[in-house]
Amino acid sequence: MKLALTGKTLLVSLSLGLAIVPNLIAEVKGQNQQVTRVKNFTWEVSQSYQPPDRSAPSTTAGGASRGSCLESTGVLTSLMPQNNLGLTATGYPTFFWYVPKSSAQALEFKLRDSTNGEVVYQKSLPVPENSGIVSFTLTKNELPAPLEVGKLYHWYFTMVCPPNPNEELPGKSGDVIVDGWVERTELNPVLVNQLENAAPSDRPALYAAAGIWHDSLTILVELLREKPDDQNLKNQWKELLNSVGLNSIAEKQIIDCCISKDD
């Protein structure tokens, strides 16, 4: 299954809300996109995410959930677009979740091939000491093969809660789970050219405008880890999450987690 990038027009300007002086720009056109490039090869685009023109299959867990082992008012939340489908250009993407304070015994990540339901990857991860945004990256030495282009994969992220002796069925722990979908896509040649000419801080916005969620989020988090006090990056982070309805997550701390227990 091939997935075309969004047909919406991407407008890049020197400054949002300001007019561009005509003799400072050159237009680059191709494959349903129009991009404006300034002569010094700097870019400025809106950090708003533009989703692909389709929805993910129906899910069982949804985008956020509560369970019996949470110790605060927080909710386990996947950092995903509202349609719960995330595109990536890499065979080994990174996933992000907000994990609240809990008494969970472990975190578990599972990835299924949506074609046959086969589990292609499963890992147990440590529970962070504090609440915050955690990430997990599929790696070449653990995943038998990279994600295939055009194939949907269904992932599940679970907070494994201890059994509750007060429940009628104490063996049922009330685990907290969220799920979503990921698909690898090929980059449009025009987008490749844009990325090659863009400053590192502008690349997340280019991915976001093209509907490639995982790469936009991953690169932006990497930049924030390098420059945690950069206000421009902080603003980009807030705008990106706000554009997909994750306003309540935008202020949460990004923490270093997680490495699989059997690494």
Results as ranks from 00 to 15, higher is better:
194 Q>F: 00
255 I>W: 05
49 Y>H: 09
29 K>C: 00
217 L>I: 15
40 N>S: 07
32 N>Q: 12
215 D>M: 10
186 E>N: 04
94 T>Q: 15
50 Q>K: 08
230 D>Q: 02
53 D>T: 07
56 A>T: 11
81 P>G: 04
199 A>L: 01
123 K>G: 08
86 G>A: 14
86 G>E: 15
73 T>R: 12
92 Y>H: 13
184 R>S: 07
51 P>E: 03
63 G>H: 14
166 N>P: 00
255 I>G: 10
146 P>R: 15
9 T>V: 13
170 P>E: 01
207 Y>F: 11
235 N>L: 07
216 S>N: 07
194 Q>Y: 02
56 A>M: 10
224 L>Y: 07
263 D>R: 14
27 E>W: 02
167 E>Y: 06
85 L>S: 04
80 M>W: 09
189 P>V: 01
28 V>H: 02
99 V>P: 05
26 A>P: 00
90 T>F: 04
74 G>M: 11
247 N>H: 11
111 L>N: 14
24 L>S: 10
151 K>A: 12
218 T>P: 06
200 P>G: 01
238 K>L: 02
167 E>A: 08
78 S>L: 12
220 L>G: 08
23 N>E: 05
216 S>F: 05
64 A>Q: 15
32 N>E: 10
170 P>G: 03
128 P>N: 04
247 N>G: 14
17 G>Q: 09
150 G>Y: 01
191 L>V: 09
151 K>S: 12
20 I>N: 11
9 T>Q: 14
183 E>N: 06
